[in-house]
Simulated scan of single mutants.
Amino acid sequence: MNRGPGTTDDTQVRADCTVASDGRIAFQLTALQAPAPQLLLSVRPKKGPKGSKKANAEENLLVLPIDGDGRAVLEPQPALAEGRWDMYVLPEPGAPRRRIRPGFRDLRALVDGATREWPSPVAVRVPYTTKDGFLAVRTWLRTAHAEVAGIDVTEGSIAVKARLHGADLAPGAVVRLRARGAEGIERTVESQIERDGRFTFALGFEELVAAGGPGSRVWDVSLRLQPGEGTPSIRIGRLLDDLADRKEVFVYPTVTVGGAAVRPYYTVDNDLSIEVTAVE
């Protein structure tokens, strides 16, 4: 379980939450009996090599007041750092903080998030239930973001529709595929520019398998706003709805091409990647 310092889990405190389209989240806590309670959001340390957790030099902690009716509000500003924020209630100053169980989550305002235009920075917040059954908030904070609108996988290729948010899309933008863990190995694919930041691209799997050489490899997919080496890239993925984790939910077919199994997938951060696995 993910426990912070001075934490106790022997609690039945629950929180309903309602998300507004502007990112505002209202929490309504139940079974809370405390003289001066506070709601705490603590960003979870990122995992380092072999699953170890990188310690933060200073815990990133957000404290919200809880009114007499058990209500606390997380305003749209300031934007939260990207990560997973575990939620706690502090009954009173100096008391151990307690984990919160999820109640009713009204996320209807997030469902059609991809239909709206998002300014820079693109700040996304999705309340969700952790694997161990507690309430948390998944956040993304990016200067710009390319949102996947559709993926079509055929026997030998993939076609992707997407829309850019937080930046201007101009002719010359290309899709960049970079081999993870391999310095300098990348490929670019032309994109077809449409209106309102929308674009499409298609990729043949056979070329991707050959480009990576023997063995298995993962290719991360990004949008490069200008052609040429060293220009900034914007990760392509799917963040703008009510789903905090889609890796195990959106599963695309695996295609065998040139002695390798190829499949697109979403990473743990909901970014788009393509896995090429050598077939023995």
Rank of each mutant, 00 (worst) to 15 (best):
L240W: 00
A159P: 09
R14D: 07
A173Q: 09
L208A: 06
T8L: 15
L240C: 06
R224S: 13
V189L: 12
P91G: 03
V276L: 09
I66V: 05
I193V: 12
F201E: 10
E248S: 10
A278P: 04
T267C: 05
R187G: 12
K53E: 14
A123K: 09
V19L: 06
K54P: 00
A202C: 07
R44T: 14
V13P: 07
F205I: 13
F199Q: 00
G23Q: 10
Q226F: 02
I185G: 00
E186N: 06
D220I: 06
R116K: 14
E248A: 09
R163G: 14
A244I: 07
V218Q: 11
P45A: 04
V122E: 06
P232R: 06
R101Y: 00
V279D: 12
G204M: 14
L110G: 01
D245A: 11
K161R: 15
R44K: 15
K247C: 06
A261C: 08
P121Q: 07
E58D: 09
L40N: 02
D245R: 10
T188K: 05
T7G: 12
A159F: 05
G166F: 08
S222F: 07
L225W: 05
D22W: 02
R198F: 00
T7E: 15
T154N: 11
S52H: 06
L80Q: 05
V124G: 08
A260E: 03
R142Y: 11
L90S: 04
Y265C: 08
T200E: 06
E248L: 07
L135A: 09
I236Y: 05
G48I: 07
A211R: 00
P253N: 09
R71L: 13
